[in-house]
Structures are given as structure tokens and as C-alpha cells.
Write a protein that binds this DNA or RNA. Structure first.
Lengths: 149, 149
DNA sequence: GTAGTTGCAAAACTTTTGCACGGCA
DNA sequence: TGCCGTGCAAAAGTTTTGCAACTAC
């Protein structure tokens, strides 16, 4: 399953960076493109290994620095989990993450009711909501069919 | 705001531990009581400092070991956040966490619709759900009224 | 030209683990 | 008494930071 469908062009990324007065270096463009294109919720390591294929000198520090920029710009969300497997997603719409605790895959599920629940909750206690995270943890169908460990 | 309202007695905790053939040491009892009673979503450090008041020799390692036991027993949930501030909560019912990104406080909000959204999502993609997490990030009313930093 | 960025190494933190001692059952 | 649990220190793992060299603009 290829992830880089080039839905986001170099030009788009360059425009985003320039708008924030950030330099459009090849490393940054590659990191941004990969994570913004991906629907796989990659880890920093995943991104590092993938970007290294085209830019062998890139460092993990640069990956983290670029991911932090994208977080500040609100273009990606950081999903932390127990056992230190932080993952990054570019889907900014309110949605549900189905997280398989056996294979680690994450599926996005849309449900319009998520928005109305958020609206109800923040009204109840007067809260300025800025983002959200809705995870469901369990075992996916494929893993359920496999023999237990 | 006192947190130890003794809603959970030593006897209850001892019974829980013995049922799992775990020894009911004073440290474990204190750690379990504190985190199971708390509605403040404490960090491991918070728990360590508080338990140290009554058990000065307790170590952070013991706190982590005990928290891991409680997690395995399904009695608490671990909430990880960016910047490494993992927090623990004893509210096992599906609910929403309103997380203030300025003061760090977390409020629980109940909404029965959370359950139906979960049911709908797991049916759509055939998923064995075991637990969930629904966070809303933003700024609480009190912090909104304060001057910006 | 120069201000911002990279890549390396080291630091900072959180959480886990190994092991000898000590205490619960 | 025997075995499990504790507490210390060290390890492991992830993310951040300082800095000299480099590069996009």
C-alpha cells in the first residue's frame, strides 16, 4: 500500500512554509510532504527512515523539529500512547481513531455526531475548545481471526 | 481541595489485591487508595510525592509498578500527552476529558451519546472495542479570563 | 551576505529493569 | 520460612538542545 500519492505538491508545501517565513529546505519539504500525505499515522522513526531514502544525510533531530513546526501550524496532530509510540496524523477533521492494540494499525472513522458532542460538552462547562482526540482501543477484525498469541 | 475522601477503604483495596494473589503491602495500599480516590488525574510524580508523606521510603519505581498492576486490572486508565506528562484516571465510564492547555487541569464530562458513537463506529468496521479515550483540548473559563501570558 | 537551518552529539526526561535486602502471608 | 515486593541504581527509549558548519533567499 503506497502512501505517497503526491496529493500534496512540493509547491503547496513551499507556499505553506514561506507564508510562515520558514525556509523551504529539501529536508523540510520531504518531511512535510510525507507526513501530510500519509494516512498511516506514522511515527517519527517511520518518517525518518522514509525520508532518508531520498535524503540520506537527514537527521532525526530535523524530523522532530519539522514535526513541531507542523504541530504549531495546526497541520498535524500528535497522538501519544503508553509505551512511547508517538504517532502523527494529518487528518484535522474531528473523527474517531480505531486503534488495534495487537497490530498497531489505526483507522479513521468519521461520525458527524462527534462535532455535536463536542459542542454540547464545551457549552456545559464554558470551555474554549481548540482540538480534540477520540480513540477507541481494541482488536481489529483481521487480528481477531488470527490465533491468539 | 482535599482528594482523599476515603471513598475507597483499605479493606476494599486489600480485597482487590488478594483476589489477584498480590501482596497487600502498605505502599501498594497507599498508592492504590490515592489514585483510585483521586478525581484530579494525577501524574506518577504527584502520586509519588503524596504517598511519600505517609511512606517516606517509597520509591518512584514502586509507584510505576503499582500503577501498571492497576492498569492491567482495568482499574485505571493511562492518559499520555505530548511533553511527557502522563496522567492516570480512575473514572472507567466512557466520558469526555476537557483538558485545559494553560493550567493543565482536566474535567470529566459525561455524555450518554459517547456510548452510541462508539457502538456505531465499531459496527461500521467490525472492531472489538475494549476501551476508549475522548479528549477535548482548549482553555478553561478561568484561564480565559486571565491576561494572556 | 546573513539569518535561519542542518546534523551531530550530548542532555534531559520519563519509564523500566536487575538485583540484594526485607517483609508479608 | 519461602516467596514476593521494595528500593536503589543503572538502563532503555524518546524528544530536545547547543553549537559549528552550511545553505536558502
Amino acid at each position: 500500500m503506497s502512501m505517497n500519492n503526491s496529493q500534496i505538491s512540493d509547491e503547496t508545501v513551499i507556499r505553506l512554509l514561506r507564508k510562515k517565513r520558514l525556509k523551504a529546505t529539501p529536508q523540510r519539504i520531504a518531511i512535510c510532504r510525507f507526513v501530510l500525505d500519509s494516512r498511516e499515522h506514522p511515527t517519527a522513526q517511520n518518517i525518518y527512515i522514509k525520508v532518508k531514502e531520498m535524503h540520506p544525510t537527514v537527521s532525526l533531530a530535523t524530523v522532530y523539529k519539522t514535526l513541531n513546526i507542523l504541530k504549531e501550524l495546526g497541520l498535524i496532530k500528535e497522538l501519544t500512547f503508553p509505551q512511547g509510540e508517538t504517532r502523527f496524523e494529518s487528518n484535522r477533521e474531528p473523527h474517531i481513531n480505531l486503534v488495534c492494540q495487537r497490530c498497531g494499525k489505526i483507522w479513521d472513522v468519521d461520525d458527524l455526531a462527534v462535532r455535536s458532542i463536542i459542542a454540547r460538552a464545551v457549552t456545559k462547562v464554558k470551555f474554549n475548545a481548540m482540538s480534540e482526540r477520540f480513540d477507541i482501543y481494541g482488536v481489529c477484525e483481521r487480528c481477531s481471526k488470527r490465533k491468539a498469541l
